[in-house]
Amino acid sequence: MTRKAKRLYSIGAMVLVVGAAAGLVLTALSSSVAYFQSPTDLVKNQPGPAQRIRLGGLVEDGSVKRDGSSHVTFRVTDSVDSVPVTYTGILPDLFREGQGVIAEGTLGPDRVFVADTVLAKHDEKYMPKEVVDDLKARGLWEDGKGLVQKPEKTVSAAPAGAGS
């Protein structure tokens, strides 16, 4: 083999390998990535059951229901719309009502979101970034201040306190 042929040969092999890898990457990118959506997006778009979705928002107050085993249902809200979610497994330590959460999974035909992964914030300083961005875009979040508007909770005027 001449030197030139050798070079062609090796360049050809490289192109082959890199090309194959690029093909793999493109296929994988079109099929196996998850899109972030807020509850409002999800209600509006109604994606099919094949599309993987990262649903981000706040866990609606009073919506978490455990059926005694490892099966949990709750609602994820962005204070405009909310979506019911079911999940089987262990919730993260910092999963709490009223806190940011990301659920990854698919939207079932009955419009219940079936999550296979649930991520919560990692500590009290942290809120999932996508959720913050989304809330910011709606004017519900300000840097340094956090959530500026919450579903109203009024203090009861007739307190059932210690004296009663």
Partner: peptide
């Protein structure tokens, strides 16, 4: 019967946490 410290605290607690 106005001592609603606990109630006010818990209700407000969530609202003001950030």
């Amino acid at each position: 019967a106005a001592t609603a410290v606990g109630d006010a605290a818990t209700v407000g607690g969530e609202a003001a946490a950030p």
